[in-house]
Amino acid sequence: MKACVQARILAASLLCSGAVLGASQALAWEPTKPIEVVVPFSAGGASDQMARTIQGIIQKNKLTTQPIIVVNKPAAAGGEAMLDIKDSAGDAHKLITTSSGIFMTPMTTKLGVSWTDFTPLVMMAQDAFGLWVNAKSPYKEPKDLLAAAKDAKPALKVGGTGSKREDQLLVIAMEKASGAKFSYIPYPGGGAASTQLAGEHIAADTNNPSEEIANWRGGATRPLCIFSPKRLPYDAKVVGDQSWGDIPTCREKGLDVSYEMLRGMFMPGKVSPEQRDYYVGLFRKVAATDEWKDYMARNALVPDFREGEAFLEFLKKDELHHKDLLTQAGFLAAN
């Protein structure tokens, strides 16, 4: 630290960080000012809740010496936040939470940014998607809904978050797999879609478990199937005698569509390996806490913690997968 102080005096405008100072590299890096966590979605959404939960866990267990600040930058489907992180290359006090928007937003909007501009840290979990209908609706299985959709005029309405993003891709995949036709209605968030479903304004939605659980438990909506490759690993009762694990996968029920979405943490590019390792270690500790496990179970997140090479491999594969999906749907931005 002494070296740091000297460096400050010598070069007032330089941040005292390992990247700048070869001398302090022997020491493990520690943050020297508050850490900003950028959430590319608005307050109250699933990404925001995850960031605030992590913030709470870190502060409660005193995992860092510096406070954590959550900053929401929801504009342009997260594009603004991504450009901000790209511009902050080298800033080791800034993190960003990510979902698959990290692939899709640049692909659909021509923004000059990619996840390779960032430093991947960890994947905390994957988020599942369900096919939900109103509790009063006659549909018992996915095939009932699909059969009804084939005859419906005007087409049955399916709600989801935003446009040209994961929810709409799911609906298109369902159309491809079944031959039925839906009207996809974009809402600003999963909460709004869930409420619209409870009020019978749409026939179904494709929400994440965390977005739909309130209405499921309240008896307003219910799941037909889950779009994960295998059932969710939670057997605690959620509603009546049903647990998350009791919901069949869509594949089991003859609707061959499967999709999960990463929930990860990145930091800006051009940071030192020590800085990266510090945060990887931090999130490893977060993931091991009971609070985090509770949070995962409550929101039915799919446990899939990855770091280092494993995360990188995953990202490369997932990016190609999304490019495929967007190409098929015709959503790639024309260059």
């Binding site: 400050r8 007032a12 405008s13 330089l14 005292c16 020297t32 000012k33 508050p34 406070p67 600040i69």
Partner: peptide, 16 residues
């Protein structure tokens, strides 16, 4: 309130 506002060289010099 931990609301970060734009800071310049003086703040960096002081360690913020």
């Amino acid at each position: 309130f931990r609301v970060p506002l734009p800071k310049g060289p003086l703040e960096a010099f002081l360690g913020y």
